[in-house]
Nucleic acid binder design. Structure first.
Lengths: 144, 144
DNA sequence: GCCAGATAGATGCATATTCATCTAACAGCC
DNA sequence: GGCTGTTAGATGAATATGCATCTATCTGGC
């Protein structure tokens, strides 16, 4: 069944909003000499996992990474000294990732830029909408 | 100024929704042996422009393409016989793009898949929200 | 134990993307 | 006309991505 004009407009708006804002944020970070936005997702996911560490395949799902893509990104990040990996002893195919002190520091530096950018781009909704509601609405679209 | 939890949640939801839905759509098209989603944007923009044609730099802005990226994408699409280009006579640096019969046909084939996917993914909002409102809210975020 | 899947992650190769730079054409000024 | 700066688009080289395939390990059935 074909979409209504309103559904199509929503899809177009969703794409334009995400793409344009993401683009601005990513280039601002780059201009500050910091790593791309996607690195932040990884650092933050692993930092929140604390000492338990995090396994690549878990991140793959929650952050929507292509497997091979994540595999290589992690290698780069380990190479930069932001992460460290160890063998997961209960299943020796697996790896466990932990963030290093340098990784924490870089994440904080990124947040100094990234945080304000989120506020800047997310605050100006028309007064009749709460960010929370729009987030709920968007999340309701994720599932099928 | 740092973001509130709600602003951050909105930004995360915006990314997850766009990325996950886009991913599903793009791979469905591929599975049907059709070109990627981004080709649709180009075909549709040019088809709507009719005989007047469209210039690359105009598309660059409205569809948020990287200049070099669009340049090469257009070359591929011309190579596939979906578009044709001619020199823009009023400014001979420029090009004018027009869609071919084959291009129209491919766009229609893509729409047979793409249209229903938009409906499928955009219809199930909680009843208190209209797609139109959410689109307005998202569009209001685009500007800064 | 042994075999047939399944799963975690790595990798080769083709393709796409980015960045910086280049060329050609234009526009304004003297 | 000649010069300077700007803009449209192309391109080389480095990097990233996607896809298919590979290896190693695990799991379950027998």
């Amino acid at each position: 069944m074909h979409p209504t004009a309103e559904e199509t407009a929503l899809w177009v708006a969703l794409n334009l909003a995400q793409r344009s804002i993401y683009g601005v944020m990513d280039s601002t970070l780059k201009a500050e000499g910091l790593p791309p936005l996607r690195w932040y997702d990884v650092l933050w996911a692993i930092e929140r996992a604390k000492d338990g560490g995090l396994r690549p395949f878990e991140m793959e799902k929650s952050l929507l990474f292509e497997q091979s893509n994540l595999s290589r990104l992690l290698r780069r990040m380990i190479g930069e000294g932001l992460l460290e990996e160890s063998v997961f002893q209960d299943d020796r195919r697996g790896k466990v990732l932990r963030i290093t002190a340098k990784g924490c520091q870089v994440r904080k530096q990124m947040w100094m830029i990234y945080g304000p950018l989120i506020h800047e781009h997310m605050y100006g909704l028309p007064t009749e909408y709460e960010p929370e509601e729009i987030a709920l609405a968007l999340n309701s679209l994720i599932r099928r």
